[in-house]
């Protein structure tokens, strides 16, 4: 099971590299999202994948699942959410100000109007 998830993470990261190497701003942002998904799958797998009880409070549960990777996962999800959201705003702003969403055209020092 672990090996399958790791392969899936590899596929996700490969897809994200493809997306991030493209020239459109939006694709790059989606690429960073997919990259973090791949990394998160890796993080989850690191705790070991198994069916277990909730690791708090319940005395009757015999096998616990490791809570720490899940806690870290949630933190990273929150952070990625905020990052992606902010960058979508910035990407629209970039598109409006620079008039392009092609990163090929985002070189050098652009002339400022203000």
């Amino acid at each position: 099971m672990e090996i399958l998830v790791i392969i899936l993470a590899g596929i996700l990261i490969g897809a994200s590299v493809y997306l991030m190497l493209s020239k459109s701003l939006l694709r790059i942002i989606i690429g960073t999202g997919v990259l973090s998904h791949g990394i998160l799958l890796m993080l989850l797998t690191m705790g070991g994948l198994k069916r277990g009880g909730i690791p708090v409070l319940d005395d009757s549960v015999q096998s616990y699942s490791d809570p720490l990777p899940q806690a870290m996962l949630l933190t990273v999800i929150v952070i990625t959410f905020a990052l992606t959201a902010y960058m979508l705003v910035i990407a629209i702003r970039v598109y409006k100000e620079l008039g392009t969403d092609n990163v090929e055209n985002m070189k050098g020092v652009p002339r400022d109007d203000d």
Partner: peptide, 11 residues
Amino acid sequence: AMSDSEGADRS
């Protein structure tokens, strides 16, 4: 509203 483009600083 694009002129105020901040806010996503933490969650």
